[in-house]
Simulated assay, not measured.
Amino acid sequence: MKVFLTILALAVASASAFEEVVHPKDVAKVNKIEGRITNGYPAYEGKAPYTVGLGFSGGWWCGGSIIGNTWVLTAEHCTGSDVTVYFGATWRTNAQFTHWVSRNDIINHHNADIALIRIPHVDFWHMVNKVELPSYNDRYNDFNEHWAVACGWGGTYDGSPLPDWLQCVDLQIIHNSECQQTYGSGTVSDNILCVRTPDGKSTCGGDSGGPLVTHDGNKLVGVTNFVAAAGCQSGLPSGFQRVTYHLDWIRDHTGIAYY
């Protein structure tokens, strides 16, 4: 019994050593609406035409990705109210156009932090366009060590005044085993993808639901999910829903798939 209790105590101590996570949407607020890429760079107009802003009627701000003429992909923890979708908005409040969408047109995943928003049909051009999902040939590709870009609106450091210009940051995808050293396997399971955040470069408050797109091939591989509770600039990994894990779910609801 003493041996068992000792092992149990070690297990509890080990579990408590893992870093806690927080949804970027819930990072402590500053004076303006949240939406932040820390230590990124301003996007030129048309750099990420698939990125949309999501202004929810509850007062919070998230991001999303256009994956088809009538579909946006985002995070489940963002949803819960009606939403205004901002299209082609390099300057957040100066969108090319907006659409209001009822919460009835939001499809939440029951077991993962990912969601779909059914939008009115939008035509594509250089300022508003879709991003492709990974193909089924890549469904078992973990994209380890690949470089990718995340985009969102906001400031350049923790607590900064938040500019409205779209910000992007280049981040490197890491093995889940590396991410588990920080958060544990209970948080970082097969449906999670993580990136390194060196030099304070990271996703942060308001970036929830936004895209992570590979440099090579421009494929949407991640949906922004969590950062370390220690802070966006702590240097600890940021977590995303792994899009390849959800290809069947996306196809079943939208008909969108690449083979």
Rank of each mutant, 00 (worst) to 15 (best):
Phe56Cys: 11
Trp91Glu: 15
Ile117Gln: 02
Arg103Leu: 11
Arg103Ile: 14
Val83Ser: 06
Met127Gln: 10
Asn69Cys: 02
Thr79Trp: 01
Val83Trp: 02
Ala95Thr: 05
Thr74Asn: 05
Gly88Trp: 05
Cys78Phe: 00
Trp61Leu: 08
His126Thr: 12
Ala115Ile: 13
Ile114Ala: 06
Gly55Lys: 08
Phe87Cys: 12
Asn111Glu: 15
Trp91Met: 14
Ala95Met: 07
Leu54Phe: 05
Trp60Glu: 15
Gly58Ala: 07
Ile119Tyr: 00
Val83Arg: 02
Phe124Gly: 05
Asp123Trp: 03
Tyr86Val: 09
Trp60Asp: 13
His99Glu: 15
Val72Glu: 09
Ser65Gln: 07
Ile106Ser: 08
Ile117Glu: 06
Ile67Thr: 04
Thr90Lys: 06
Asn94Trp: 02
Cys62Phe: 01
Ile106Gly: 05
Phe87His: 05
Ile117Pro: 03
Ile66Ser: 05
Gln96Thr: 14
Phe97Asn: 07
Arg103Asn: 14
Arg103Lys: 14
Gly58Ser: 13
Gln96Arg: 10
Gly88Lys: 02
Thr90Gln: 13
Thr93Ile: 08
Val85Tyr: 01
Ile117Lys: 00
Gly80Cys: 11
His121Gly: 01
Thr51Ile: 12
Trp60Ser: 14
Ala48Trp: 07
Ile107Leu: 13
Trp100Glu: 14
Asp123Cys: 00
Asn104Phe: 07
Trp61Pro: 00
Gly59Ser: 06
Asp113Pro: 13
Ala75His: 03
Val85Phe: 02
His126Phe: 05
Trp125Met: 05
Thr84Met: 12
Asp113Met: 11
Trp60Thr: 15
Trp125Glu: 12
Phe87Ser: 12
Trp71Lys: 00
Ile117Leu: 08
Ile66Gly: 03
Pro49Gln: 03
Trp91Lys: 08
Thr84Asn: 11
Pro120Leu: 10
Ala95Cys: 07
Arg92Ala: 11
Val72Lys: 01
Arg103His: 06
Tyr50Gln: 05
Trp60Asn: 08
Thr90Phe: 00
Asn111Ser: 15
Gly59Thr: 12
Val101Ile: 11
Ser102Lys: 04
Leu116Trp: 04
Ala75Trp: 02
Asp82Trp: 01
Thr79Ser: 13
Asn94Pro: 00
Tyr86His: 13
Val83Tyr: 02
His126Glu: 13
Trp91Asp: 15
Ile106Asp: 09
Glu76Phe: 01
Ile107Asn: 02
Trp100Cys: 03
Ala112Lys: 08
Ile66Lys: 01
Trp100Phe: 12
Thr74Asp: 11
Trp91His: 08
Glu76Ala: 14
Trp61Thr: 07
Asn108Phe: 02
Val101Asp: 01
Arg103Phe: 07
Met127Asn: 10
Glu76Thr: 14
Ser81His: 05
Thr84Lys: 12
Phe87Arg: 03
Pro120Ile: 11
Asn111Pro: 04
Leu116Tyr: 06
His110Trp: 09
Trp125Ser: 12
Trp61Asp: 06
